[in-house]
Design a protein around this nucleic acid. Structure first.
Lengths: 150, 150
DNA sequence: TATTGTTATACTCTATAACTATA
DNA sequence: TATAGTTATAGAGTATAACAATA
């Protein structure tokens, strides 16, 4: 055991990703939610998308979305509402129960990540966060440029 | 469209985690491997553990390990070898084919992460990497302390 | 005809419980 | 008896293909 002092940049980011991902997974599991269900609920926080739009956003097949929404609906976390403009179409809306559960998981996750950050110095914290923010915006810009070109 | 400029620290780390995790998942999927199979192969890179040890390391039930190893073995990526000291016990060894496939995925992943890093300034790169490294060691220390106490 | 969504089917991943074979 | 591992079974998550209803 030693030896995170010799991490390559790639390993450092990979381990960080697994660490944070694992923290979210643990908090979600506490609430009997999978990462997929959390993603779904996160999207529904401020939207009421069709099944189709959900598939595009989550990059999942429509049949996968059907199953995901089925299970969430069975638990009372979301409801399907008929679209007013296209009778083939369905919109997915989060219920109050879904919102409450989502908030609960998010609060736990926030606390965990803040606790992780508290383990390093304030200077390191701001270096990490500003680096992460920069990387995310750079990637978003690159993706937008690709989408434009493509 | 806009707006990674107002990320909270927690959101910044969460988005970074999803970004890096997604990159690995995409590269693994290219090679028809799941994240779980990649974890398994990663562990076998420099070890020949028993099923039991694998379960402890991956924090999975032994029956899950059985299935994971079954599928990897069916693809020729690992082999089960009888333990020389305990006839109940089995050791898992990566094959050359497994090693080759693992390396291929790792090379792709490394290239992707380095490309991401190349999108931000050298100063931001080193801030991010040293912050990540610090966080990982702090967490490892905290976990070790807990294990000691517990 | 094309699109929206569901269903049937299949495979991976995970867990629990029951089992076999050693120790 | 206890431990190492497998098998049977079940449920979530994912995809492909076939289908129904609507556009």
């Amino acid at each position: 055991m030693t030896s995170d002092d010799t991490l390559s940049p790639v390993d450092a980011l990979a381990q960080l990703a697994f660490l944070v991902h694992g923290v979210l997974e643990r908090r979600a599991t506490e609430a009997d939610l999978s990462i997929s269900q959390m993603r779904l609920l996160g999207i529904l926080r401020d939207r009421e998308p069709t099944m189709n739009e959900l598939g595009a956003r989550m990059v999942l097949d429509k049949s996968s979305i059907s199953g995901l929404v089925d299970r969430a609906e069975r638990r009372g976390l979301v409801v399907r509402v008929p679209s007013s403009t296209d009778r083939r179409s369905v919109r997915v809306r989060m219920t109050d129960a879904g919102r409450e559960l989502t908030h609960r998981v998010e609060r736990g996750f926030d606390a965990d990540v803040l606790a992780l950050l508290a383990g390093i110095s304030p200077a390191q914290q701001s270096a990490l966060v500003s680096g992460a923010t920069a990387l995310i915006s750079a990637e978003a810009r690159a993706r937008a440029a690709l989408a434009d070109a493509g």
